[in-house]
Design a protein around this nucleic acid. Structure first.
Lengths: 262, 262
DNA sequence: CTTGAACCTCCCGCGACGGGAGGTCGTACG
DNA sequence: CGTACGACCTCCCGTCGCGGGAGGTTCAAG
């Protein structure tokens, strides 16, 4: 650690080449005071010292971890004596990165599904695909991020076949109810009471251990149905040949009346 | 699909509540022409139709997948007849997301290491930690992303113990060379020739199957050493009690001369 | 002394809005 | 019928991390 007067200094271009940071960025760092060259020549040209360059390397590393320039400025201002701040920031950044990675993974999965559906031409109608997009958004409007995550976890835990089986069972119930609605079966008939009980147990597999959470999810689902009955009914009936668009609202209303009658 | 004159229309505030999109954002979408309400009242208030709201849901879903508003505008402009564009965009987005997730995973690992080192107080000197940051940046300056990934893959494939063993073996070689340098052993001595051979085989475990890639990595490493001898030497010697800061350059030069003498 | 590269400052632009100022409109209530 | 208040309107500045251009000065080599 010897510092004599003849210390080496570099022009902004040389520094740019050495560090791989563009000249424009160096100007920017100087402007905001993040890395200012130790001195200027008489004519105003920037002269960077070895210590400036080291600071630049630190900035680059921290930028690489996703810290903002402001955060970097604060940790580099106090860091010599205080590593705790830096540690906390890095730890926070780590948590943020992991959360982001998890979100990205969920999105990737959803996207793979969608692209797969498009490729398999399962959904030949363009309108139908766009409607799928709408439903995704509606779904996200009514359920919070945690709720969606919770439901997604449950689904993957149960496995695709189980989920598919549940869907089939639900459709079977819908068909049975449709018949009862058509027949005008009274709401206190033991048969429809049994069907309603099965209806309610279906969701149990997706329930979380926390009952309060379940209530919130049920409430969100109810609100979704309340506000978007038509779209949902249209969409589901369009994929089945035995269900008319206005069947589902009638069925849901009927089920509700059965519940009340208990 | 019946469209009578008495179609339902909503004010911007109602739409905001229904979709969860802020009023400000609705203004923005109108401004850039992404979602314009079907009409205005005489006084200029926006009136959104059901079809506008559906478009908003589509926009929100696509935004959720990370598409830009411009991309969304193009796919929604042509999408009714052309799902291929949308498919390609989603597929591209999927690839981008996966790449990003992979990068996030690498960064997380690096960050966990760093935070772990800070917590374990392995590195009590603040300066030393900041120097670590500098080295990270330098490392990234000289090796390309693929090269770093390649090296990281090799390291994880070999396992921590093997890597540690390699490090130990290398240190052993360095100590042996240090002695030979001190003794002035001639560069054509079979003992130093053997040591140099071992030196060279050490890196082989990290080599890629592609020889050209190896050459590039070696070149990058050489450039790094050329430009940052001092920092590296200082850093390594500070962690060992038997190595002076100026030993390593001498040793490297000696090894080079042994190589030339062959 | 000239030429061309490197350097300087100043300023507009991006993407997707947030937020405030300052004005108009709609409607419910007194 | 007036008035109060909330909802709505347009216009414009700010964000973050620079990129890039204009228009001028300085440096180093020939």
């Amino acid at each position: 650690m010897h510092e004599d007067g003849a210390e080496q200094r570099w022009s902004i271009g040389e520094v740019s080449r050495r560090t791989g940071i563009t000249v424009r960025t160096l100007y920017h760092y100087d402007e905001i005071g993040l890395v200012r060259p130790a001195r200027r020549t008489a004519s105003g040209h920037r002269r960077y010292t070895a210590s400036d360059v080291r600071r630049l390397y630190r900035v680059r590393a921290l930028r690489g971890f996703g810290l903002s320039l402001e955060e970097i400025a604060t940790v580099l201002a106090r860091s010599s004596d205080d590593l705790a701040t830096l540690r906390d920031l890095l730890a926070a950044q780590l948590a943020a990165l992991e959360a982001y990675a998890a979100r990205a993974a969920r999105l990737s999965e959803q996207l793979r599904d969608l692209v797969g559906q498009l490729d398999a031409a399962v959904m030949p109608e363009p309108d139908q695909f766009l409607t799928t997009l709408e439903m995704i958004s509606v779904y996200e409007t009514y359920f919070t991020e945690e709720q969606r995550e919770q439901l997604a976890r449950r689904r993957t835990a149960l496995g695709d076949e189980t989920v598919e089986a549940t869907k089939m069972e639900w459709l079977e119930l819908v068909r049975a109810f449709k018949q009862h609605v058509a027949d005008g079966t009274p709401v206190d008939d033991p048969r429809v009471r049994d069907l309603t009980a099965r209806w309610e147990t279906i969701g149990v597999a997706y329930a979380s251990p926390d009952p309060q959470e379940n209530d919130q999810i049920s409430a969100a689902a109810a609100a979704l149905w309340r506000d978007h009955q038509e779209e949902i009914s249209t969409r589901i009936s369009s994929q089945l040949d035995w269900l008319a668009p206005d069947d589902l609202p009638k069925i849901m209303e009927y089920v509700e009346r059965v519940r009340q009658a208990r």
